[in-house]
Structure formats: C-alpha cells, structure tokens
Design a protein around this nucleic acid. Structure first.
Lengths: 171, 171
DNA sequence: TTCCCTGCAAAAGTTTTGCACTACT
DNA sequence: AGTAGTGCAAAACTTTTGCAGGGAA
C-alpha cells in the first residue's frame, strides 16, 4: 500500500555492512587515529576501547550504554573518559550527538549519508530512513525563509508495525 | 529568489494575535480550568499565575525562563511547582515539550496547527514555519515504512538572514 | 622528559520527589 | 473535612571539571 510514486524512501538497515558503505571496525579506528594525529592528540588504550565498543554497539548509543559496554572489557574506565571521548569523536567528526525526546543524549556514527529517524513511542525502536524528496524540500524551505541551511533533523514519532499488530492481536 | 512553485511555506509570526487563531489569555486560562475539571484536578492561584506567565512569554520557553517570569509576580513559587504545572499543561494537551539541541527542555503552546522550526546556530533565534508539502511527505514516508504516525518534528539548523549579513558586512 | 590523558570524586545543571503544611472544592 | 497542591530541601540523573597520578610521543 506504499505510495512511492515520486521518490522512494530508503530504509537503512541497522548494520549496513552488506551495503559496503560502512567502514570496518579497523578502518574506523584507523580514521580515528589519523584525526587524532592531525589534532596533535594522543591515541590511548581507553580511546580505542571506547571507539571499538561504540562501533560494536552500532547506532543510537547513550553514554550509559557505552559505559556499560566498555566496562565489560575494562572495568576501570570512568564516565568522565566516556564523555570526554564522545566529545572527542564529535570533534573528529566521526560521531554526532542527537537528542530525541529523552533526557539523555544519543550518539551515532557519521558517514553513511544523511538520514532521518522514526521512533516508536511504544518500544523505543528507531528506524532510519532516507528520502530524497525530503532533502529537496528542506532546501526549498530554507530558501524561502532566506536562511543559510547547515543541517536538518526530521523525526517521525508513532507506533511501529510490530507494536501495532501486537496491540491488534490482543484486542 | 524563493522557489515557491508547488506549496508555499507559511512563516508564522511570533505573536499570532493578528491572525485570530491564538486564544486570548483569558480563553486560554478558561480552557485550562476546564481541562483540570475534566480530570478532577484543582485550579489554584499558582497554576493560574504560571499559565499566565507562560502565555505572556509566548513561545519556546524554558522552565528557568518561566520560573523567573513567575517570580516577578510571586517570589514564593518554587521550581517544583513550575515543573509540576508544566507537566500538567502537557497532560492537558495545552503545551508541548521540545528538545532542541540543548540540555534543557523548551515548552510551547499547542493549538495553532502543526508547525516546524528553524533554529539559528549563531543567535539562537527560532523561526516557525508551516509547509503543506512537508505534512504530506511525512505521511507518505510513514506509509512506506508501514508505521502508524503520531507526530513529527522537523528542525532546520543554520544561519539566519540577520546573522548572515552581519558576517558579510564584517569581512 | 614532557605534557596529555585517566580515574576518582566532587560539582554543576536540570528535573523529580518526600514531607509537612496550605488551601481548593 | 477531605484531599490535592505547594514550598522547601534533598535526591536523582546526566554531564562536566579539578586534581593527582600514569602513560604516550
């Protein structure tokens, strides 16, 4: 019943490995090292551990989730290092920070082209999508408003298919 | 130079009084009272004061800003009451909570139709706009994703006209 | 060797909660 | 009168910072 008349929405898979666009963990860490070097900063065991854990968890990670994951391999890391490294990853343009309707921030890997998010209000699942028309439309809007566009954010909130059918079968 | 070929973007003025769509302060408080009554909750002096201050400040208020405004007429109110009343206003569907890229939430009056936001990354100015095509497009995307849409949020970030020209004249 | 980085703990900022008192209905 | 609401202070939660010690270049 999808009305993909004009511009099809591309749904991104959680692990985009198959598409070949996502760098491997090793490549990603290498890029991180290079960016650190450019900035005359040091590569450290902790930074690598955190970056690896981040890569492993894939998308939309909170600082807390990352902290827990890193603790599994190194129980000594502190929250401070997690936050400092997240900040660093942002400065290295490897990670971006997002604020969905929550009190805590979430972080995701940059680099597979712009995409937007659908967030299920029942189960919290996040579906990423890409829509060429949307990209076009937002540029038009910016033009009309007479502003210089730097970035945008589109979030759809609702009930995912799974939760919808769960509810239906219950009733 | 605006390319309003298909669907014009409507920019909302900060105080939409002239359009006649925004309820007056009195009407708004009355609605609040009615919603409280429906829920078997009480109207109180503080709740009215807070609602009035909220209305006065108009859009995109933070709890802190609201607290300061309320304190001017009643120095005894506590933050707790501010937050509790904001929660109440949300439950009464009179106010919605937003998280732009900040650590603190912002609140705005519901009721003049859906709109989205442009946020200037230099001066923090928020411009509201409405775009019929956008509303249409998001429904299409939801359909394609097979999800039930409840609400959406589109935020454009960039540099507003004023800040752009300021920068240009400097260089 | 230098000085950046880490871990701990404490602080800071935002929001929530417990409790005794107040005031709507 | 009865119960919900208020104000204060303390707690909770997320994120940041100061400082002394440790490690990368």
């Amino acid at each position: 019943m999808a009305t993909s008349r004009r511009g099809a929405t591309i749904v991104l898979k959680r692990s985009a490995d198959s598409s070949g666009r996502r760098p491997s963990a090793e490549e990603w860490i290498e890029i991180f090292h290079a960016r650190l070097k450019e900035r005359a900063l040091k590569s450290t065991t902790q930074r690598d551990e955190i970056a690896k854990a981040f890569y492993r968890l894939a998308r939309h990670v909170s600082a807390e989730e990352l902290y827990e994951e890193v603790k599994r391999s190194n129980p000594h890391v502190g929250y401070a290092t997690i936050y400092r490294t997240l900040k660093l990853l942002k400065e290295c343009e490897l990670v971006s920070e997002r604020h969905f309707d929550e009190s805590q921030a979430r972080y995701e890997i940059i680099g597979e082209g712009h995409h937007d998010h659908f967030i299920c209000e029942r189960c919290g699942k996040i579906i990423e999508f890409q829509n060429p028309q949307l990209e076009c439309l937002q540029r038009e809007i910016a033009e009309e408003l007479g502003v210089e566009l730097v970035r945008h954010k589109m979030e759809l909130y609702g009930i995912c298919q799974e939760c919808s059918s769960k509810q239906a079968s219950k009733g």
